[in-house]
Design a protein around this nucleic acid. Structure first.
Length: 801
RNA sequence: GCUUGUGUGGCGGAAUUGGUAGACGCACAGCACUCAAAAUGCUGCGGUUUAUGCCAUGUGGGUUCGAUUCCCACCACAAGCACCA
């Protein structure tokens, strides 16, 4: 079998015939399958890409054969730091490098035989694409979803770039893994928090894998609680806190505010130990994320000398501390501390010798905080209540009646820091005018193109390279016409990928990001598959953009993705994550070269559960190669007949059912296993009919499209990609006989093959006639007999006493 | 620490609503073909045992006629979150 010739031949056929072109004006049912478009890095495709695409590749090929109009597109998410850094290193323009990398990727994707619609390829770095990224950004600006703020940001000194919280997890830069420092910067934000509730609500309507839904819910992190106003006696100022446990208000023995809380600066002359406070603030600001996590247990803080708070429910006077275990970014930056019933407050109180007052019965507050439920004590009008919900409700009523608090909601999700100080990204289309403020670039001037510059290296000041291009920076204010300066920061990498699935629908539209008509036909994405690592960032970001466009009436549905799944990683042969430094990277090109694309595709899907990680095994792949050889050589025993062989018919119908069902649930490994069983059976008989062979080729086609097309052509048939998916008859999947298992006390003691329609009574009788069963029930009392039709008989016996 | 997964032969992994544990593949062993090797085909392949049997799905309990599957506790690994009030 000349694998290389066969694969090249069919790849050319598909390209010449545009076999996988999605039709815009079709009365067929549509199916939109989406995979995460690759970042075209210099090293080319890795096995992970192939696994990520192979799943929906199989589904798409099956759908086409089932008569659907399938949109299965691909593109490139090509803006970003790695390309820019590599371009600087090699001293070539990122544009040149990007084009080169994309070419490499396209070549590799085609060699694997993916059935993408190559007429819809998009590249986020092309002005005709990012024009619309900027356009959507300006729409958000227009609707007040973009704002600028001076804040402490995560700054990577090595990449010289501001990072979002998501990009700097664990205090390390997501890109170069160096330590992040805090730095004050002008930051552009997208107000994603305005959509927190909608993003959460929307999850109820979609069909994401449960763990994916859960991760998104946790990321949004909604909590319901109460805002309560405390008063600071000395200055008469209100200090509002957020709590989820207002039922414990009577147990408050101190308060804590975040080190960055504005009250401190505002009233510094009223604070007697202000020097000590300043020292603490200084220390807290230098603590890296890493140190903070290491010191979770060890609470630090300083009492504010000069402030006393008054508990609004019982007028108790209590001290106020500052401590870095309270974060300015969540709630109000201030908490009421109930050490008897909160672990962190407990530790703090122990360390600073603050009284601990229990208000819920249960636990032992001399050793630990009690966070469970119980009867309310020491709590005025709440005393005696046993149910947490009722207590909270009662307290809320009290707070609202007396105007000292109200119910409220908080989210963990933060607004999205949306600017980067790098060249290779979409320019933010804003002009800074000293008279008019931040002014949007007019829509008709889009795209605001990246200037073609010689030196795009970042400056030491952390400014964008664009800041050095005077012809870019200096401009006229679109509003007043006076001299103004352009924003020089660019958008983060997540920008272009936040709406790309919409562009596939209408990739060449020059007037709109996509026509409503076409969106109406194609949306929603029926099935979106990608990496688990993108579930909390990209998927949430893009849902946010889509929700916004929906509110503007520009897209037809309220959620973009109907279904979302995720594939597991492919690990190195050593069971570790593949990485250059470990030297365990397998190059897909080598595998295609050695075994061919069909073997690679099939093996990747055969390795194990598609959703779980699995190690690469260099000898296991040989099994797939052998299997494909077997399929190939079956052609020598085909006899011409348009009927299934009688002795194979039942297995064929069962296999059609199994493969069809398994593809839908992404159980590709067992689908392939059942095809192997069928092939083994074919091999054990003297001859197979043309129809027997055809059905095998069709079922196997989504996995191994090249060789199956070739064999199908040898049979004299029209191409499989233009034929229909095999159907099975339910009645033919049922055997005439079955193997009845006979158990005594749950242990297997015998098996016999009997007619499928044997009655319960007959089964029980036959069971007791088996010799080995007789031995085990001899001289024992039969207590009862459990019979499962078409399966087993279990005889329960006990000793005769 | 919290949340969510996962734990089955030498290995990757199968096992409908609880009903034959180990499908399918790899590796290994024997045989056939060959001068020989590779490839291919056939046979075997959890442990123990003479067949009957007994023991085995991370560990310990429980529910059940029957548990890889359900419940409780614990252990290990992975991913996500990380003082979220």
């Amino acid at each position: 079998m000349d694998v290389k010739r066969i694969e090249a031949k069919w790849q050319k056929y598909w390209e010449d015939h545009k076999s996988f072109k999605a039709e815009d004006n079709s009365d067929k049912k549509k199916f939109y399958a989406l995979v995460e478009f690759p970042y075209p890095s210099g090293v080319g495709m890795h096995l992970g890409h192939i696994k990520a695409y192979a799943g929906l590749e199989v589904v798409s090929r099956k759908r086409r054969m089932e008569g659907y109009n399938v949109l299965f597109p691909i593109g490139y998410d090509a803006f970003g730091l790695p390309t820019e850094n590599s371009a600087i290193k090699q001293n070539i323009h990122p544009r040149v490098l990007t084009d080169r990398n994309i070419e490499t990727f396209a070549g590799q994707l085609k060699k694997v035989g993916f059935s993408f619609d190559w007429d819809r390829v998009i590249d986020t770095t092309k002005p005709e694409y990012y024009k619309w990224t900027q356009w959507i950004f300006l729409k958000m600006f227009e609707h007040g979803l973009v704002f600028r703020d001076k804040t402490l940001v995560n700054y990577c000194p090595s990449c010289r770039v501001v990072l979002s919280n998501e990009d700097s997890q664990g205090g390390k830069c997501d890109i170069c893994h160096s330590e992040i420092v805090q730095k004050e910067k002008d930051v552009w934000y997208l107000r994603i928090t305005a959509y927190a509730d909608k993003l959460l609500e929307g999850l109820k309507k979609v069909d994401y894998l449960p763990n994916i839904k859960l991760q998104q819910e946790n990321w949004i992190g909604k909590s319901t609680g109460a805002f309560v106003d405390f008063t600071i006696k000395e200055i008469g100022e209100t200090l509002t806190i957020y709590t989820t446990r207002c039922d414990t208000l009577f147990g408050v023995t101190f308060m804590v505010i975040a080190p960055e809380h504005p009250l401190i600066r505002q009233y510094q002359d009223k604070i007697r130990n202000i020097d000590e406070i300043h020292q603490y603030q200084e220390m807290a600001s230098h603590k890296s994320e890493f140190e903070r996590t290491q010191l979770v247990k060890d609470k630090t803080g300083v009492k504010i000398d000069g402030f006393t708070a008054i508990n609004p429910v019982n007028q108790e006077e209590i001290p106020i501390y500052i401590s870095d275990y309270v974060m300015m970014g969540y709630g109000t930056g201030a908490i009421m501390a109930v050490p008897a019933h909160d672990d962190r407050d407990y530790e703090f109180a122990k360390k600073f010798n603050i009284p601990i007052l229990p208000v819920i019965k249960g636990g032992d507050i001399s050793t630990a905080a009690y966070t469970g439920d119980g009867e309310m004590i020491n709590s005025g009008f709440l005393n005696g209540l046993k149910d947490k919900k009722t207590s909270i409700k009662k307290m809320l009523e009290y707070l609202e009646e007396n105007k000292i608090g109200h119910q409220g909601t908080q989210y963990k999700m933060k607004d999205w820091a949306f600017n980067r100080q790098r060249y290779w990204g979409e320019p933010i289309p804003i002009v800074h005018c000293q008279y008019c403020g931040d002014v949007a670039v007019p829509y008709e001037e889009l795209p605001l193109e990246l200037p073609d510059i010689e030196n795009f290296e970042v400056g030491t000041d952390g400014e964008s390279p664009l800041a050095k291009i005077e012809s870019f920076v200096n401009c006229k204010c679109p509003k007043c016409g006076k001299d103004a300066k352009r924003e020089t920061d660019t958008m983060p990498q997540w920008a272009g990928s936040s709406w790309y699935f919409l562009r596939y629908i209408d990739p060449h539209n020059e007037k709109e990001f996509a026509s409503y008509e076409k969106l109406k036909y194609w949306m929603n994405v029926d099935w979106y598959n990608g990496g688990m690592e993108h579930v909390t960032r990209h998927v949430i970001y893009s849902r946010f953009w889509y929700h916004f466009l929906y509110d503007l009436g520009l897209v037809p549905t309220d959620e973009p993705y109907q279904k979302r799944t995720a594939q597991g990683l492919i690990l190195g042969p050593d069971g570790e994550k593949m990485s250059k430094s470990k030297g365990n990277v397998i190059d897909p090109n080598d595998i295609v070269e050695m075994y061919g694309a069909d073997t690679l595709r099939t093996y990747i899907l055969f390795m194990g559960d598609y959703g779980l990680e699995a190690p690469w095994n260099e000898s296991s792949i040989k099994g797939i190669s052998r299997f494909i050889d077997k399929v190939y050589h079956l052609k020598e025993k085909v006899i011409s007949s348009d009927e299934y062989s009688k002795n194979l018919e039942s297995l064929i119908h069962k296999t059609i059912k199994k493969v069809s069902d398994d593809i839908e649930t992404m159980k590709f490994n067992t689908a392939i296993a059942s095809l192997m069983t069928l092939v083994n059976k074919y091999n054990s008989v003297d001859a197979i009919t043309k129809k027997d062979y055809e059905v095998l080729l069709k079922l196997f086609n989504p996995f191994a499209p090249h060789v199956t097309e070739e064999l199908n052509e040898i049979l004299g048939n029209k191409p499989i990609c233009e034929s229909s998916w095999p159907k099975y008859e339910e009645s033919k999947t049922i055997d005439e006989t079955f193997e009845m298992v006979v158990q005594v006390n749950g242990k297997v003691r015998g098996k016999i093959t009997i007619d499928t329609n044997t009655s319960k009574e007959e089964m029980e009788q036959l069971a007791q006639q088996i010799d080995n069963v007789k031995i085990h029930i001899k001289e024992k009392e039969i207590v009862k007999i459990i019979t499962i039709p078409k399966k087993l008989v279990n005889i329960v016996v006990k000793e005769i006493s």
